[in-house]
Design a protein around this nucleic acid. Structure first.
Lengths: 253, 253
DNA sequence: CAGCATACATGAACACTGTTCTCAAAACGA
DNA sequence: TCGTTTTGAGAACAGTGTTCATGTATGCTG
């Protein structure tokens, strides 16, 4: 090639034969950030790692992204792309809430440590607002009083995020503990509970087994079911209060 | 109680009065860490800041604490000191669950960003296990089937932590946004919701006001009430299944 | 085709972070 | 008084987010 002479300064005009430099975009940066997240985890997700993933200097990122916070927001926003929202149906609101929760958990578990990233982001961006909107529509379709809609959203959201966060944290502990599989990890925990002093921890020792045999999926569904029943209780109460006098003026308290 | 335990070697220096250097202890380090947390926030809580707070070199901390993770664990554990747990009462389980949740939230809000610290710690230490135990006892006293006890704990815990986390995040945003009071912040949000396009966000625009007039306390209580009703629903179902045949052998499904 | 303006990427630098290392000084037992 | 051990100090390493002046490549204009 040209190894006999070092590159002379005025030879800079030499046409580069290879592919021209692909311009950096926000999308490409988010892609790279996800790659780093999946490979290295949340703690080691740094601007420098992302830049290295793209084969680019760190400062180049700052032309497209105002900072790490901004990048995290973009990653969070992508969580909601391609998440179809059905129109609220009063007949099927239970299944719809259940489906929403399940997809939410699944999306959070799609990428490593995604739940940790999700906490710490406020769901008021253009991608997330429709979800808030739809959740509220679901609660209204269920017949929930307006006063309770916000609280219902809090309960559902915190459960989805919190449950996924706990899962990803156990996953992290499992990895650094060197446990091979989840079954081994569960066995370790089962033995830990079993060997607690029964006089001080009667419930943990007796329930420990039961709590650990059921997988995370079942546990998540049970939690969602508890919440749904709570919502249903309020909805039924509201229906009872409104039903006896359908001809009177609508509820005004 | 434990005042006459002379075994701690580094406390013997206390014999000599005067301006001798006060020996470092884990407790003093945790105190200083809390002081830094309250003043600077979670992001700026660093080993160097803690050392500076004590007027001590960074490396001195590492003689008493294996690392920052260890220090965070100690801080988390202190959250549970002086948290009295009543014995589960089947007649009053609702109030007891409610009280537990309220105290939990209050403790988390006692120190700045404490909720963010709380997430990321597993509640299996010697200080926290009794709380898990008591929560399970509460659910059993309520008549909840054993299968559901774990899920019930998940729902309650994630709600307490998640709600407090959201609160502390709004508090942080308020501070950096320069809003003077919570009322101003609420007004800003109210206007934000009001000015959304109503055809795309009918629920948010109509419910926005209502969601924001009620304070956080009320919202938290409503969320807890939803969960309690969900638990009650399962408990009643279990009672119905066991009640019709009190003379037969106990429920075995 | 040449020249230019502008968007783009660079590398070095700053002020931090957690952690570890060697080394000095103080407090203890003898 | 002498060691010995405990305990803190200071520097150093490998990172972090962010900003800056400096350069380079691109696409548009004449």
């Amino acid at each position: 090639m040209s190894d006999e002479l070092p590159a002379l300064p005025w030879e800079r005009a030499r046409r580069r034969p290879g592919p021209t430099r692909i311009p950096l975009t926000r999308d490409r940066i988010v892609d790279a950030a996800y790659a780093v997240l999946d490979r290295e985890g949340y703690e080691r997700l740094s601007m420098r790692q992302v830049a290295a993933e793209l084969g680019v200097a760190v400062s180049a990122l700052y032309a497209h992204v105002t900072g790490k916070d901004d990048l995290l927001e973009l990653m969070y926003a992508r969580l909601f792309t391609g998440w179809d929202l059905p129109t609220p149906d009063p007949e099927r609101w239970r299944e719809q809430v259940r489906d929403y929760a399940r997809t939410g958990r699944a999306k959070l578990l799609e990428h490593r440590d995604m739940a940790r990233l999700s906490m710490g982001e406020t769901p008021f961006g253009p991608e997330t607002l429709p979800h808030l909107e739809q959740l509220l529509g679901l609660f209204r379709a269920a017949g929930l009083p307006d006063r309770l809609a916000g609280a219902a959203g809090d309960v559902i959201s915190t459960f989805i995020d919190g449950f996924a966060l706990e899962e990803s944290m156990w996953e992290a502990r499992r990895q650094e503990a060197g446990e091979r599989s989840w079954a081994d990890m569960r066995e370790t925990l089962r033995l830990y509970f079993r060997d607690l002093p029964p006089e001080r921890f009667p419930n943990l020792t007796s329930l420990g087994d039961l709590m650990l045999v059921s997988g995370n999926d079942e546990r998540f569904d049970l939690g969602i079911e508890i919440i749904i029943r709570g919502l249903a209780s309020f909805a039924e109460e509201a229906a009872r209060n409104a039903d006896p006098s359908p001809s009177a003026e609508p509820g005004r308290d």
